[in-house]
Simulated scan of single mutants.
Amino acid sequence: MTDIVRTASLGLVILAGGRSSRMGRDKAALPWRGATLLTDLLLRSQGVAFDEIVVSANRPPDLSSLPPDLAARIIVVADSFQGCGPLGGMEAAFRACTCSYCLVLSVDLPFYDFSPVKRLLPELSQTSLVDLFLPMSENRPQPLAAIYKQEAALEAVQAALAAGKRRVLSIADKLAVRILDDAGAPILYENVNTPSAYKDALAVDANRSRAVPIVSLSAARSGDGKTSLAVQVIAELTRRGYAVAYVKSTHHRRCREKRGSDTDRALQAGAVQALLCGPDDVAAGEGKEDALLRLTQQTAADIAIVESRSHGPFPVIYIDGPEPPSIRLDNITAVIGRGSNDFFRYIAPEQIDCLCGYILYLTTS
């Protein structure tokens, strides 16, 4: 008997047609790595030999920056079921795609690297029993970074929409599901739904390009608690096993180290290095922010904490107070205080564990 070799085709579906109501602007068009979230994701997708690429978008996306051969391959479809969330986009995309399987990705996954798909590719041609390969990350299912069998998924999505269902996972009961517990690092599935989440992603990406990742602490006035907070953070991160450096911005010239100074307090808290950055440390043609960043990169540390009232390099954690910040708002990713503005993440002053967890997310992800 001759063995029958079964082949399977794989399409890519990118859902880029959401309302982006929490973001306040089109997520697909957000700047990312010199491109946009959508175009960068499409460029990264070239690492996998997808047979078709379908973008679900309810307004024509700007694909002009893509290589012509890639742009020519992309099929753009609009929802037939308007206002139905991701299921509406999936329905339109599945109808347009002729592949056996489809990788469905939300457009707002800036760190997705396609490694889970590459591991699964050999299996797609060897099984017909699975309708949905569903990644689990930190015990959370990721249906918008999953592989669906096109025919079965289209039928399930259409049935769900006809029944008035809107949750993507509502179709799982109609499909043969294989859970992927080894789904890659959690950062792959981090999405950007709000301005603060977008700034977090920008911070993570910036720190990935630095030899020593950094976080700046800032406050509008001297005496608002920057150094005290830095000391607590240094002590806790040191306790967790990280080598932490401390760089403090100052306006004084010819600074000398002395007992009880801010740098001495940082060293006593466990900092592996504590440096001052005054006017004499700024090179000709260099800004203070650049000088602070340069000094952090010269430290022998896992993480550098910068203390500066108005020149802290991105990302900045700002200590809330009665006066407005003296640092650019776009540089602030989190506020030590209480609030509900989606533009910032808020961390209560007493939540040092939470603050340190956030710093580690920005610096080690």
Rank of each mutant, 00 (worst) to 15 (best):
K118D: 04
V316R: 07
S125K: 15
Y246A: 11
Y246C: 09
A245N: 04
A235M: 12
A220H: 10
K199R: 14
Q126T: 12
S106A: 12
I74F: 12
G278H: 10
V168K: 01
Q158S: 13
I14K: 12
N331W: 10
L295H: 14
R73K: 14
K165E: 15
R210H: 07
L37A: 03
S20K: 08
P116H: 07
D181R: 14
S80A: 15
N191S: 12
Q158R: 15
A235L: 08
A49G: 13
Q150Y: 02
L15I: 10
V76S: 03
V244W: 02
E155I: 13
E236K: 15
N341T: 04
P68V: 07
A284N: 00
C97Q: 06
D113V: 04
R309F: 02
D330K: 01
L41G: 04
Y246R: 01
G47L: 00
L293K: 06
C356P: 00
I359C: 12
P315I: 03
D205C: 05
A153P: 09
A183T: 07
I147A: 13
L38P: 06
L188K: 07
A197Q: 14
K174W: 09
A206E: 11
E151F: 10
Q150C: 13
A243R: 15
L292T: 04
R345L: 14
V204S: 02
V177P: 03
Q142A: 09
R309D: 01
D353N: 15
G287P: 03
M90I: 15
S196T: 08
G270M: 03
I179T: 08
D302T: 06
A206L: 09
S80M: 11
Q82L: 15
I147R: 05
A35E: 10
S170P: 02
T39E: 02
S340E: 13
R254Y: 08
M23N: 06
A271Q: 03
G34Y: 12
S310G: 09
P122Y: 11
T333Q: 06
D320H: 05
V104I: 06
A163R: 09
E257T: 04
A271H: 02
D181V: 13
D182R: 08
K174F: 14
N58A: 12
E151T: 12
D290C: 10
T263N: 03
V215F: 01
P143E: 10
